[in-house]
Amino acid sequence: MAINFILVVALLLAALWTVMTARLIRSAFGLALTSAVLAILLFRLDSPMAAVFELSVCAGLIPVIFVTTISLTHRLSQDAFQIRQKERWGKYWYLLVIVVLVGVLLSRRALLPDVPLPVVTHPTDVRIVMWNMHHVDLLGQVAVILAGVFGVVILFKEVKK
């Protein structure tokens, strides 16, 4: 239990660093760190396959995409950087207050509807669920990946002048 708590705190600190750091490249690395900690949490929640996907794809591939995109664009000027540093601390501070208030309201049991949910049991093996019960999802994934490939081919194509 203590390990879970430490991991949750580490996850939130990594996400906070991602959000608050000034440099974009550090933000991308913070995102990779957040994904890595989340992968450990998923593993501890009895979801090893999801954890492997999270670690390999979200902590590995997506930061590479971000770093590539960042390296192909230019950095902020020093003046713009200073302005951004000043501006962002005061913005949307009330967002957290709203969330806390909504949480307090929802935690009062009188406000929560007592909906009887049907008990649904699926096999705990993800391979059986994916290949035997949700095989249409796999077709959808293939279609989405193909759409992504076509999108990348078109977007990254050099325009002949």
């Binding site: 999801a50 996907f53 993800v126």
Partner: peptide
């Protein structure tokens, strides 16, 4: 956990494609 892992794997695949295409759009 089997069902939710299947959902999360689908989510991750879609997430990656969105990020790649959005990166291309930004470029």
């Amino acid at each position: 956990t089997g069902l939710t892992q299947a959902l999360v794997i689908t989510l991750i695949v879609i997430e990656v494609v969105i990020m790649v295409v959005a990166g291309g759009v930004i470029l």
